[in-house]
Design a protein around this nucleic acid. Sequence first.
DNA 1: GCCACTGTTAGCAT
DNA 2: CATGCTAACAGTGG
Length: 274
Amino acid sequence: MPELPEVETVAAGLRAGAVGLKIKAAVCRLPKLLRETAPEDLQALSGLRISAVRRRGKVLIIEAEERALLFHLKMTGQFSWAAPEAAPDKHTHFILSFENAAEDLRFRDVRKFGFLRCLPLAGVDDCPEVGGLGPEPLEISEAEFAVRIKARKGRLKSVLLDQRVLAGVGNIYADEAIHAAALHPLTAASRLSPAELVRLRTALRRILKAAIAAGGSSVRDYRSVDGEIGDFQTRHKVYGRAGERCRRCGGTIRRIVVGSRSTFYCPKCQRRKR
DNA sequence: GCCACTGTTAGCAT
DNA sequence: CATGCTAACAGTGG
C-alpha cells in the first residue's frame, strides 16, 4: 500500500538504521526484481558506505557513495532487519549485509511487483523512475499546484493519482484529500475554481503530514522498517468506509470505480460540479 | 473450490 | 495526447 507517507516512514527508518553502514554484500534472489541492473552492479556495492536515504514520490533512494539503489515498493514491498542466520522466507528477494552491523537489511515483496535499480548517484534525477515525476506535494507552491491540476482534462481523482502531475499521491490519500476539500472525485480537474484548488492543496498537505506523523496507514501489508504498523487508517474519513456514516455530515459513504480504482466519497457533502 | 478484490504502474489499444 | 483496460503476482475473504 505504500504511498508517500508510508515510503517516507520507511525512508526515515532506514535512515536511522542504515546510514554509516559499510556494505559487505548485496544478494538478489529474484532476478526479475532487478531493473536495468546487472549482477556486477550489485557486486560493485561491496565496500561502499551508505551515506543517505531519501524519498522521491513513492520511490525510495538509498545512496552509497557514488552509487544509488532505487526501490519501488509497489503494493507489498517491505524492508526489515534480520539476523543473518535466520532463514529468509520465500518472499524475501534481496538482502544487504554489512561489515559493521549485526543484522542484514532485507527486502520482501509478496506480489513481486516491486523493483530495484542500481545506478550512479549522478543519474538518479534523470532516470525514468524519478525523472518523470511531478513535484512533491509537500513542496509545491499554491500557484504551481493550480497550474498543474488545471492543465489536466481528466477527472480529479485520476489526476491526483497521475505521478507526472504530483509525485507520491496514491489511492488512499487522493480520496481523503478530495473528501477533506469537499470536492467530487469525478469533477473535471480543469474546472476547479481558484478557491477549490487552494482548499485541495491545503487538505492534501495537511493529510499527508498527519499521516507521516502517524507512521502511515496500514490497511493490509504495510509495515515500517521496525515492523510497526501505521496508525493513520483509524483516521480515514472515507477510504474503505463504504456504507458507513460520513464523519462530517452523516451521509452514507459510497464506493465507485474511477479509472479502475476503488474510490470512496460522500455523496452528500462532496457534490459534483456542474 | 471459485471468484472478486487488493494500496502501483507500465504498456498497449482506442 | 488523453483515457481506459490489462497484466505483472500472491494472498485473502466471501
